[in-house]
């Protein structure tokens, strides 16, 4: 069930040099929904995700999180808002000088207020939930791509954030591991109430299984915003991208 808008983008644009990567983006992310940001590679999905997280500042328009414009708030307010975020990076972004357990514990230690035994218990529990109970003391360099994604997912969700952003969770993974990762995304999303999750991917087959709503970004603009049922009446490009991929999948299976 979708609730109030947690993130609201109004006329958001971002450019690098003279080239606009995304422009005129109007978007809402609501509490409790699992939103799929879809579209071909290189059309601005990941840049938009970074804008939603406040990791990049828009060159025009505004990104509001719980009513606060990310570009206007001071570092302390931003730090307060960031406690509500979890972010799974496309290339894992695990701290390579820390063990798996320390990587996952890091957000809790940074947030403060949680005793070490409690942190250790929660880290162990989360890693066991993701099938990584044996990897506590290992380092990122000793893990496979799928394991790194799961560690990244554990780190993104250990603080039980209200907003979780997943940047291409299946990038570089084999189909079996990809399916497992998407199932975990769904499990994490439903593990607590009113979480707003945004998943960036062009893997439509797997997105279809988990997402409540889709926003398609094409050439830096929103081409479609709605549930799967509304695709039929949308721009033909949306159907071509969405069902074309589904068609391939159906044919293959």
């Amino acid at each position: 069930m979708s609730g109030d808008a947690v993130i609201v983008c109004k006329g958001v644009g971002k450019r690098y040099g003279r080239k606009w990567i995304v422009r005129d983006i109007d978007l809402e992310v609501r509490a409790g929904e699992l939103l799929g940001l879809i579209g071909p590679g290189g059309h601005g999905k990941s840049v938009l995700l970074r804008l939603l997280a406040g990791l990049a500042t828009p060159d025009e328009g505004e990104v509001r999180v719980r009513g606060k414009n990310l570009a206007d708030i001071d570092p302390f307010e931003l730090a307060e808002l960031r406690r509500e975020y979890g972010y799974l990076f496309q290339n894992y972004a695990l701290f390579d000088f820390m063990s798996v357990a320390d990587n996952v514990a890091f957000p809790l230690r940074q947030a403060g207020g949680v005793e070490e035994p409690e942190i250790a218990r929660r880290v162990k529990e989360r890693l066991e939930q993701l099938g990584l109970g044996e990897a506590l003391d290992r380092f990122p360099s000793e893990l496979s791509g799928g394991m790194k994604k799961r560690v990244g997912m554990a780190r993104a969700t250990i603080g039980e954030p209200a907003i979780v952003l997943y940047d291409d969770p299946s990038a570089g993974l084999d189909p079996v591991t990809s399916s497992k990762i998407f199932r975990l995304v769904r499990t994490m999303h439903h593990s607590q109430d009113d979480v707003a999750s945004v998943v960036v991917s062009h893997d439509i087959d797997r997105m279809k299984v988990i997402c409540d709503r889709y926003v398609m970004i094409f050439e830096g603009k929103v081409l479609f915003d709605g549930p799967e049922e509304a695709i039929e009446g949308a721009d033909p490009m949306v159907g071509k991208f969405f069902f074309g991929s589904l068609g391939q999948s159906s044919g293959a299976s």
Binding site: Y85, F89, Q90, L94, F95
Partner: peptide, 10 residues
């Protein structure tokens, strides 16, 4: 993106 990950972990 480890520096971004640090930022996201506050």
């Amino acid at each position: 993106e480890q520096v971004d990950a640090l930022r996201m972990c506050n």
